[in-house]
Computed example of a mutant assay.
Amino acid sequence: MFTPVTADFFHAPTLELSRNLLGQILVHELPEGVVAGRIVETEAYMGAEDRAAHSFGNRRTKRTEIMFGKPGLIYTYQMHTHTLINVVSGPEDTPRAILIRAVEPVEGIELMAELRGKHMPMKNWTSGPGKLTKAMAITMDHYGRHFSEKPLYIAQGDPVHAVSVGPRVGIGNSLEAVHYPYRFWETENPFVSKFR
């Protein structure tokens, strides 16, 4: 049905990979069935020199340790009650990562409806980084695995041709990093996150 991309897919410069991830399919094989969403929005964090990155100044903590690993590793972290999911990118020991901000549901629609609440309109299920992990039952348990390996993986999709680029969202106290054009999204896709 879906086949994971090979590990070398992730061996691209971080900003290029952020763009390449658009249109690929995030897949989670659950005991109850498969849920999958087409990636429509990403956000790059450029490591040591990026004030908005958890690894700014090469900060190594229990949480950020995985960012120093090989590209394609899964970096999950908790923010309030949400789990957020990132793709580790860049060469080893260069702690960069790409946040998956939004996906468009393509498989397991009924299961996603149950996970998010059937009363909710579909375009609100996965239109944000904390929403999509709930809709796809992604938890902290995936930390440190690799996106080329089941059960949680990225599969080959179709490239996105209309891509918009702009500043990242919700990083207000990051000085100059607030303005970096490190967010990529499929232009006019209704599942892209709403930001104020």
Rank of each mutant, 00 (worst) to 15 (best):
F9K: 08
F10W: 12
A12N: 14
P13W: 04
T14V: 11
L15V: 03
L15R: 15
S18F: 01
L22G: 05
L22Y: 09
L26Q: 00
L26A: 01
L26K: 01
E29S: 07
L30E: 07
A36Q: 07
A36W: 05
R38Q: 11
R38D: 00
I39L: 06
V40P: 05
E41R: 06
T42Q: 11
G47R: 11
G47K: 10
A48E: 15
E49G: 14
A52H: 13
S55C: 02
F56L: 05
F56I: 01
G57F: 12
R59Y: 04
R60W: 12
T61E: 10
R63W: 08
T64R: 10
M67L: 15
M67P: 08
F68I: 02
G69K: 13
K70C: 08
P71R: 09
L73P: 05
I74K: 08
I74N: 04
Y75H: 07
M79L: 15
M79K: 14
H80K: 14
L84A: 03
L84D: 00
N86H: 11
V87C: 12
V88I: 03
V88F: 02
E92I: 08
D93T: 12
T94L: 14
I98W: 10
I98M: 10
L99E: 07
A102W: 02
E104C: 10
E104G: 09
P105T: 08
P105K: 06
V106H: 07
M112I: 00
M112V: 06
A113Q: 13
A113V: 02
K118I: 10
K118R: 15
M122S: 04
M122Q: 15
N124H: 15
N124Y: 15
W125R: 08
W125G: 02
T126Y: 01
T126N: 04
P129Q: 04
P129N: 02
T133P: 01
I138Y: 00
M140G: 13
H142P: 04
R145D: 00
